[in-house]
Amino acid sequence: MDKVQRVGLVPHRTRLDAQRLAERAASWLTSRDVSVRIPRSDAAEGAFSEYLIDDDKFAAACDVVVSVGGDGTMLRAASLSFSGSLPLLGINAGRLGYLAEVEPENLDESLGRLIAGDYEIDERTVLAVTVNSSGPANGTWWALNEAVLEKEAPGRLVHIGIEINKAFFTTYAADGVVIATSTGSTAYSFSAGGPIASPQHECILLTPVSPHMLFDRSLILGTQEEIKCTITDDRGVVIITDGREIGRLTMGDSVVCTGADKPVRMITLGTRDFHQILKAKFGLADR
């Protein structure tokens, strides 16, 4: 890989440990003549003033992006880096997560490898989420983990019609549905009873949330396949991509999900193994 001269940092905005770790990373990088940029909306008030840049100019000002936080911060950084196909490295300042590559004690060594271009790229499937609605959610969105359609009010089911590859499949009576990538299979989809997929496996998972029907299993589809969800009753539904609510859907609105035409490019230093992280997360025994 080429040497890195411009690094974008995306710290967790409210976690003091992440902000301090980002300060340490910025100091280390600038002392080696590497420019640093931080999105204005991701800096704590009064912090990082010399590095701040408007969000819409961030990607163009970077060679790589470094997330400092947990998996949620990685998803935020992925949304900022995706348009420019920028490589993305995660520094873990949270609990044990699935996405962040670097632990704080290895920060200096990892940044040294980063700016020297001594890393590999792990390409992750991204969802293209096209919303057809008269509301603010209308348009195309991108998700590294998942798109979620869920009921707006407690205590009531919603009805969501599903088409797969333009053929009607079923109508779910459920609390909602989750359309996830393999990367997102360990998140909401898993909590709803979906399978765990290796991030190396290119697939899309369709998982109903608390369905009130006999068919309550997940479906595993290819990334070139298309899932269309249509709201078929007048009970409110919200759509959420990677943890961000983007709007309310009403009867007749639809959401089409398929694999995006390009991946998120995750930086790997060869230090973490997905299956060992999974083992640690669930406290699985050695024997």
Rank of each mutant, 00 (worst) to 15 (best):
N138W: 03
R217Q: 13
D286Q: 08
A60K: 11
T73C: 06
G184H: 06
A44E: 10
E146F: 02
I115S: 07
M266R: 14
A128Q: 14
L96G: 06
E50F: 04
R265Y: 14
S81W: 07
I160P: 05
G283R: 12
F82R: 12
V256D: 00
R40A: 13
E23A: 13
L9P: 02
T171C: 10
E146H: 01
L75G: 01
N165V: 01
D54Q: 12
I277R: 08
V238E: 09
M74I: 06
T130A: 14
G117F: 10
G70H: 00
L16S: 08
A285I: 02
V65G: 04
L127E: 09
R40T: 11
R287T: 01
R124D: 08
A128D: 09
G247L: 10
Y172T: 04
R113W: 09
S189A: 15
E50V: 09
L144F: 09
L205H: 04
S85E: 14
F58C: 08
P11G: 02
L88E: 10
H212C: 11
L144S: 10
I164V: 10
S133E: 09
L9E: 04
P154K: 00
A61W: 00
R95Q: 12
E152G: 09
A173N: 11
G90H: 06
T14M: 06
E163R: 09
I38H: 11
R76T: 08
V256G: 03
G90W: 09
D42H: 11
W142A: 12
S254R: 06
D242K: 12
G8C: 07
H159W: 05
Y98E: 00
S134A: 14
T170G: 06
A61L: 00
E101R: 09
V64K: 00
E150W: 07
A60E: 15
G90S: 07
E103M: 06
